[in-house]
């Protein structure tokens, strides 16, 4: 038979009444931060796998040599390949646009420039670099790349912010737990003294506080996790409507597993903190 009741009257300490609520708030914050971290990581990971291709155009009649421009661009360390678009392909495109009925249409010459996986060039730097190689050349497909670059910058900022919030939430939980337990130990000094007189060792006394923190902490952590997941689902649905580009990022099953494990890990960390604080307090007693 197991017994979950404690020898200590911890509910009489006011900090304990707030404990589950504080744990709920910090858990929700930490879960949301971890979700943002996972989404940002996913975005960066996807970008790393997907090579970016931009198109460089030379206007009809330009003096520059397409092959030479392609060679110069390919010499850049971040460029995987720079290939002129075949004239036949351009002609077919022109016909599709309705320009190929007979008259001689002057077509621009195009280069597909593919960057190495994970490389997202700065659009302005790219335009300037292309202009240096050939003043007549323009980057015509740079807008998508710019948007892509903005998203990645945002992902990097979000990742750093999420890491900071996650670390702060965990540290705040540990600090609050340590404070609450210190107050508890002081408030329960007489009971602790009696338990020790009856032969309770430090582990027994510490276990009393650990059980209390585990019970209250888990209640708060589960509440915080549910609230955070609901908020996350609402936010993801909103993103799908208002920001389709960002909504492509999704949490993988492993991410959901990490989100579910986080509250448990936070409570475990709180329990370990409790053990340390109580044992340090008891070590000062004769």
């Amino acid at each position: 038979m197991n017994r979950l009741d404690l020898d200590l009257a911890l509910e009489r300490v006011s900090a304990n009444r707030w404990y589950p609520w504080v744990v709920a708030g910090l858990t929700a914050l930490a879960v949301l931060a971890l979700a943002v971290l996972a989404l940002a990581d996913g975005t960066l990971r996807d970008a790393a796998r997907r090579p970016l291709t931009v198109t460089v155009a030379l206007p009809p009649g330009a003096a520059a040599d397409v092959a030479a421009l392609a060679e110069a661009l390919e010499a850049r360390p971040d460029v995987l390949a720079a290939e002129p678009v075949p004239m036949e392909e351009l002609g077919a495109l022109a016909r599709e646009w309705g320009a190929g009925s007979g008259g001689a249409v002057l077509l621009p010459r195009l280069l597909d420039v593919t960057f190495r996986p994970g490389v997202r060039p700065d659009p302005r730097e790219l335009r300037e670099a292309v202009a240096r190689l050939s003043p007549e050349a323009t980057v015509v497909a740079g807008e998508g790349a710019a948007a892509d670059g903005d998203l990645l910058s945002l992902a990097r900022i979000a990742r750093a912010a999420a890491l900071a919030v996650l670390a702060l939430a965990v540290l705040a939980l540990l600090a609050f737990t340590a404070h609450t337990v210190r107050v508890d130990v002081r408030a329960q000094a007489e009971t602790v003294d009696l338990l020790r007189l009856m032969g309770a060792d430090d582990a027994y006394v510490a276990r009393q506080f650990e059980q209390a923190v585990a019970g209250r902490g888990l209640r708060g952590a589960v509440g915080g996790f549910v609230a955070a997941v609901l908020a996350l689902l609402v936010a993801m649905r909103g993103a799908a409507v208002f920001w389709p580009q960002a909504a492509q990022a999704a949490l993988r099953p492993l991410d959901w597993l990490a989100l579910a494990a986080l509250p448990v890990l936070m409570v475990l960390a709180a329990v370990l903190t409790t053990r340390l604080v109580v044992r340090r307090g008891l070590a000062r007693l004769p």
Binding site: R196, L197, G199, A200, D201, D202, A283
Partner: peptide, 10 residues
């Protein structure tokens, strides 16, 4: 400390 606790239990 542990030994003291064991003595007290007696």
């Amino acid at each position: 400390r542990g030994e003291l606790a064991a003595l007290r239990r007696r």
